[in-house]
Computed example of a mutant assay.
Amino acid sequence: MSTPDQKQPDLLDLVRPDLRAFSGYKSARTEALRGDVWLNANESAWSNPADASATSRRYPDPQPAALKAALCGLYGCAPEELLIGRGSDEAIDLLVRTLCVAGRDAVVIAPPVFGMYAVSARLQDARLIEVPLVDGPGGFAPDLEAIAQAVLAQGAKVVFLCSPANPTGASIPLADIEALLQRLQGRALVVVDEAYGEFSQVPSALTLRARYPEVAVLRTLSKAHALAAARVGVVIADRRLVSVLRACQAPYPVPTPCAELAAAGLSPDALAATRARIATVIAERARLAAALAVLPGVRRVYASDANFLLVRFEDAQGAFDALLGAGIVVRDQRAAPQLGDALRITIGSPEQNARVLDALSAQAVAA
């Protein structure tokens, strides 16, 4: 417990000192001005001949209002708590650059995991602390006690947790994330990457925001919402942190066509179709996992809360080649730590999943 003369920890203490009052670049679209002749941004007075909508000559809204409203409704947060960016990748990079002083601060990850956390740390010259996942009877899981000890002993500023995890597929129980937040209050920002959250029954870490300002949640429209090419992702966090991140962000992160497509993709009809497709993926995930588990040459199929399965093979190269020979491209995970015999297989349509099983069955017979 702190004494009266001790300073209470504050979220902004985690931000780089030189950025806490940083105002960033003020673009022409930042000003709330009204008019019918726009001559403030050095844009063309004429549309490009290929621009059928005649709108692309104008710079986009830095945080498109219609899209932001739809996203806030989807995730249950206030506009000031959400920042739209170019996929989760931009949010990851912004968080590392905003919090970590180059050459001094550290980032904690739990490999095998999504590679952009390490890439962003390296680009910022932040020390990378790896606390490997533990492969147990229930699948891969983070060693949260070891993560807490690493933060406290080495002064890390950011912890990335992927839930459901890529490429291993397991979710982290919400109570375990909360326990880590309690341990690290005021010491580090815990970033929970929920890119595959729609496919999981585990409650979102978004429910923790009211009690823990040191949690940030990443979500994306690339997976369940089938808008990978639109490059729309968000970070949801304390409004003070979101304000700093926005100041550090590029002036126009979301192209107008992408924002319009994403907003349309979050309409009630589109969301209803998305929910139906998520249900299909979950059902197909269970069917494919059960079928793979009994195939000769399959060592293990990991339980998954995502839209993919991590599978160990006796002959991973042979399985990869057999699938590729059948026109099926999967993700080779053998270069990742602890995954020297593993492939990651995205859940496709029922017909595509049947082709996966046919190709692997034929390979097993030939072997």
Rank of each mutant, 00 (worst) to 15 (best):
V158N: 00
D135T: 03
I129H: 09
L123Y: 11
I172P: 02
A110H: 13
I177P: 00
V159T: 07
L174F: 05
I147A: 00
D143A: 10
V159S: 01
A118D: 15
F114L: 14
T168A: 08
V131H: 03
L144H: 06
S120M: 06
R122T: 15
Q149E: 12
A110L: 09
L180N: 12
V107K: 01
A148R: 00
V108L: 09
V158H: 02
A170F: 00
F140S: 04
V113R: 04
V151C: 05
A179K: 05
I109K: 09
D176E: 15
E145C: 04
Q185A: 15
F140V: 06
P142R: 03
V158L: 05
E130N: 10
V158Y: 01
L133T: 00
G115S: 14
L174I: 15
E130C: 10
L161R: 02
E145K: 09
L184Q: 08
G136D: 15
G155V: 03
Q149T: 13
D176T: 08
V113L: 13
A118S: 15
G103P: 12
P137G: 05
A175E: 14
A106W: 05
A121H: 08
R122Q: 13
P112A: 06
E130R: 14
A141P: 07
I147Y: 02
D176F: 01
P173E: 11
P137F: 02
A141I: 00
I172M: 08
I109E: 14
G186W: 08
G186R: 08
S163Q: 04
A170C: 11
D125K: 13
V159K: 01
V151L: 08
D176M: 06
S163L: 03
I129K: 01
L174G: 04
A165K: 02
T168F: 03
A126C: 13
A141D: 11
G136Y: 01
E178K: 12
Q149V: 04
A146Q: 12
D105H: 12
A146Y: 03
G155K: 02
P111D: 10
L133R: 05
P137A: 15
L133N: 07
E145A: 15
D125S: 13
Q185T: 08
